[in-house]
Design a binder for these strands. Structure first.
Lengths: 144, 144
DNA sequence: TACTATATCTGCATATTGCAGATAGCTGTA
DNA sequence: TACAGCTATCTGCAATATGCAGATATAGTA
């Protein structure tokens, strides 16, 4: 539960949004080709994180975690300028993991659409009711 | 991060899915009319939780929390059979909170669609590449 | 040297959520 | 009466998710 008492007050966590969404994003980016964490971090905004920024710690933690689970493999790249980079490559398991994610996200979209449609339908009915009430009021005013 | 090492192993949390999604569901249900927690719990499956079940503790906690934040108000109903029920009513604040949720969920849908489209486009390109590679192979076989 | 950009990683606090179980009233039945 | 089962609400706990702050290190530039 949000601790904040006020409106929308939520210092940590983004409140709504899809859980663990960075994970499929990283998987897709890695499916396009091998890279290191910092590069992935910079590419994330193109992939859904237009408004919201992802913290670098989250990206690095997911990468390490996915390596532990065998979805990616890393090697050190000491070529070029700057500090060494840990370059990640998607494994066949990671490929299947991405497919599993996509399946889940498609289901999430169905759920989301169904909910938003339920909302719209309810509000439209509500609108009609208000319309009828207003008409009734007008009639009352006329008849009085 | 998921602690489980195996595939899809995730005993708690549903992994993907929309965070706090029960909250807007409860708000919409309450917008349709006042009711108590148990009734809301039973109505939730109609509203997006077709597959997954929501634990009763989650529902009751969100209701109490939203009451603390002024989005709903409760009264005890001791009429009728069974134990007393705490009946919730949406407040004007709760009404605006629902509207805020809807706004966020529409944004989430945009993000989700954009990601899934990026995936589909990438996979289609991938498919084309494979097609070209295969054609090249066939050509090689022919020329050899 | 000091500052900046690149790059990775850790610790902490908070938030989210499933699971287990406590408590209690009412209903039907052996 | 006893007890099983349904209704109804609530608490504690553990696992997970995630933002924030900051540590560490390399290399280029003023």
């Amino acid at each position: 539960m949000p601790h904040g008492r006020g409106w929308r007050r939520r210092r940590r966590g983004r409140g709504h949004g899809i859980r663990r969404f960075v994970e499929p994003c990283l998987l897709l980016l890695l499916h396009r080709g091998d890279t290191h964490g910092y590069d992935l971090l910079e590419r994330l905004p193109d992939l859904g994180f237009a408004e919201e920024t992802v913290d670098s710690s989250v990206v690095y933690r997911y990468l390490r975690d996915m390596e532990d689970r065998g979805f990616v493999a890393s090697t050190w790249d000491t070529e070029g300028a700057g500090p060494p980079r840990r370059v990640y490559r998607l494994s066949p398991e990671g490929d299947r993991y991405l497919a599993w994610w996509i399946e889940g996200l498609r289901q999430t979209r169905v759920t989301l659409d169904r909910f938003l449609q339920a909302y719209d339908e309810h509000m439209e009915l509500e609108g009609h009711t208000i319309q009828i009430e207003r008409t009734a009021d007008v009639d009352n005013q006329r008849s009085s």
